[in-house]
Write a protein that binds this DNA or RNA. Structure first.
Lengths: 190, 190
DNA sequence: GATTCGGTCTTTACAAAGTAAAGTCCGTGG
DNA sequence: CCACGGACTTTACTTTGTAAAGACCGAATC
């Protein structure tokens, strides 16, 4: 038996899937969870508070994936695994992915949200820093490296999920394609 | 003297700047334009209709920039110019940039919106296709090339404007940095 | 065992906002 | 002079977010 707050966040997922992000209503979320329309407000204060919690959970899941990837010894495989985790999350939790970067829906000054986002970011930064320490692309600025690698990953995934790249490819191909592109990029950056 | 529909779209820009995208209200937009709260509905049917027009105009401006860049003969400079136009738009019209990818705010099935987005996309695709025809990176799949180049550009800009990269750099450095990164990428793709 | 207390969730109430419908004003063509 | 149509407003209704108070219930306390 899951607790009510989690139940409400899951209800948000289903509402987004059914009615889109702008179709999220405290009343709908309450009904979807089998509760009253003020239940979500009780736990999360208000609608932005609900979104904040939802987005924080999403980032947290992404950060978990990235940090797991950061455990891999070989920096190159580590980076590829992080990218794969990012893409997999976007495909598996499309509703969450389309909302988690929309910070205007949330209370930006929430420490938990910041922490979750930074955990994801520093995970990637750490992988690349370690790679540089290993001598790979050592002549490059760390921030340039981050921007190039993570920019490519985020950009491709974002264009794929709801962007103009959604048409030419289908979902199943995102992960292998991204791996191929990033692999190639890393080859050339070394 | 600009016409009323344009006046209303400009009002949207100011409202977003002042109250964020979720602060956009037909009533506020009307007041901002010195009109009643139903004026926007009169021209654009409803709120999604208003957003559709706003987002379409934004894409249209981006597409103009990309198509202008596509005029440049040298494919490499052409691509760099397109990226620069994209980044410049994001910096100059941040309100628009933060909203134009949020298609859930709009009526997705509007032909004008599709056309504007495709114009931007095909602009980039055309540049890279021409580059390949010139023998540059000719052994590569066109879609891979698009995904890599445009993924990098979109990813870096998106992470910069409101993303985790906003902190380490400031706005003024986005265009030169992006140019440097893309320039380097193009070097290595050739 | 009765009582208080804190937490969970609902009921009620109200203001803000989206939208439909009808109405007003006004320039243009016949 | 008058019908017509477009531009915009007024009015009215519904949905939604949010505040406030209350009902229910299990655990701690006397």
């Amino acid at each position: 038996m899951t607790d009510t707050p989690t139940l409400l966040l899951d209800a948000v997922t289903r509402v987004i899937a059914g009615h889109g992000p702008s179709g999220v209503t405290l009343r709908r979320v309450g009904a979807e969870a089998g509760l009253s329309h003020t239940a979500a407000a009780h736990y999360y204060r208000d609608k932005p508070g609900l979104f904040t919690a939802y987005i924080t959970r999403a980032w947290s899941q992404v950060a978990d994936g990235v940090e797991a990837a950061a455990q891999i010894d070989d920096p190159r495989e580590s980076m590829l695994a992080a990218a794969e985790a990012y893409a997999a999350f976007a495909l598996e939790h499309t509703e969450a992915f389309t909302v988690m970067s929309r910070l205007e829906l949330a209370n930006v000054d929430t420490p938990d949200l910041w922490a979750a986002r930074e955990r994801g970011f520093f995970g990637v930064a750490g992988i690349l820093e370690r790679a540089r320490a290993d001598g790979w692309a050592a002549d490059r600025e760390l921030l340039d490296l981050i921007a190039t690698c993570w920019g490519l990953v985020h950009g491709v995934v974002d264009l794929w999920v709801g962007g103009p790249l959604a048409a030419p490819f289908d979902g199943q191909q995102l992960v292998p394609t991204l791996r191929r592109l990033l692999d190639d990029l890393l080859d050339r950056l070394a």
